[in-house]
Computed example of a mutant assay.
Amino acid sequence: MTTAGDRIRQCEKYIHRPRTPYRARKARYDATADQLFSAGISNRDILVDVGAGGTELDVCLRVDYGWRGRYVPVDGWLDGVDLEAWQPPRTFDWFACLEVLEHLRDPGRLVEALQDNATCGVVITTPNPEVWDVLAMDSTHLTPISQDMLREWGFRTTLHTFYGKYQDGITGLWTGAT
């Protein structure tokens, strides 16, 4: 059985792996910000960043977009949270889940939990399996997430260039009315 302490150590190891510079990853944060602002995020809203990593979405929203809402990070390196089983403790305005779903065995369970607890919406980003062999990108990738899957879950999707190949990333926006 994996304990919270074990998960914290695993996540710390993962988060400290060599990474591309922030500027190279910024396209996914910009795409997320564009979706959030097009759907009406305001400075009064609370955004929960599920799988927050280095909390760089918060940096992007505040520095480049002037957002002043409340940002809540959720990540295993913080407290050992297991996103395979995590349930939001209450409703929040927005959830962002960037480059996370492909790491889960049952991503639909998390998506449903986010949708059930979002009063405004959910934004997701993921590698595009039509461009990348998602399972080969990273040994922790377990489930490729396609545009069709996101659409079945009620998301409106757009394609982006996140990793250097044309339209190699997907952004999904769910507002309940999508």
Results as ranks from 00 to 15, higher is better:
Tyr65Thr: 07
Leu78Thr: 02
Glu112Asn: 06
Ser38Glu: 13
Arg62Ala: 03
Val122Pro: 06
Gly164Phe: 02
Arg62Cys: 05
Thr157Phe: 00
Gln167Arg: 11
Cys11Gln: 13
Ile8Asp: 03
Gln167Asn: 15
Asp93Val: 08
Thr158Cys: 08
Gly164Asp: 08
Ala27Ile: 12
Val131Glu: 00
Ala31Trp: 07
Tyr166Ile: 05
Ile41Glu: 04
Thr161Tyr: 03
Asp168Gln: 04
Gly121Ser: 10
Val81Gly: 01
Arg7Cys: 08
Trp153Lys: 10
Gln10Ser: 06
Glu112Ala: 14
Ile41Phe: 03
Glu112Val: 10
Val122Phe: 05
Trp174Ala: 05
Ala118Ile: 06
Asp106Pro: 00
Gln87His: 11
Val63Gly: 01
Asp45Phe: 03
Glu12Lys: 06
Asp168His: 08
Val72Asn: 00
Arg28Asp: 07
Leu101Gln: 09
Gln10Lys: 11
Arg25Cys: 13
Glu12Val: 10
Arg151Gly: 08
Leu114Tyr: 10
Phe162Gln: 03
Thr161Phe: 06
Thr3Ile: 04
Asp64Thr: 08
Ala177Arg: 14
Ile46Ala: 11
Tyr166Pro: 05
Thr158Ile: 08
Ala27Leu: 13
Asp93Glu: 15
Pro88Asn: 01
Phe162Val: 02
His160Asp: 14
Tyr22Asn: 03
Ala136Trp: 02
Leu47Ile: 15
Arg19Ser: 11
Gly154Ser: 11
Pro88Glu: 01
Arg156Ile: 11
Val63Phe: 06
Lys165Met: 11
Ala177Lys: 12
Gly54Arg: 08
Ala52Met: 06
Ala31Cys: 08
Ala24Arg: 06
Tyr166Leu: 10
Gln10Ala: 15
Ala39Leu: 01
Arg25Val: 10
Ala39Ser: 13
Phe95Met: 10
His160Glu: 15
Asp49Asn: 08
Ala177Ile: 08
Gln35Leu: 15
Pro127Ile: 10
Val134Ile: 04
Arg23Asn: 12
Leu101Pro: 03
Leu114Trp: 07
Val63Trp: 00
Asp116Ala: 15
Tyr65Ser: 03
Gly66Trp: 02
Asp138Gly: 01
Ile41Ala: 05
Leu101Asn: 10
Ser42Pro: 07
Val74His: 01
Trp94Gly: 06
Trp153Asn: 07
Pro144Asn: 10
Val111Asn: 02
Trp174Ser: 04
Thr91Leu: 07
Ala39His: 02
Glu56Trp: 00
Leu104Ala: 05
Ile41Pro: 00
Leu61Ala: 08
Leu104Phe: 12
Trp174Met: 05
Ala39Val: 09
Leu110Asn: 02
Glu112Asp: 14
Leu150Ser: 08
Arg90Leu: 09
Lys13Cys: 09
Ala113Lys: 12
Thr3Cys: 04
Pro144Gln: 07
Tyr166His: 13
Asp138Arg: 02
Arg19Pro: 05
Gln10Met: 14
Lys26Asp: 13
Tyr163His: 14
Thr158Gln: 13
Leu110Glu: 04
Ala118Met: 11
Asn117Thr: 13
Leu61Asn: 02
Cys120Lys: 15
Gly176Ile: 13
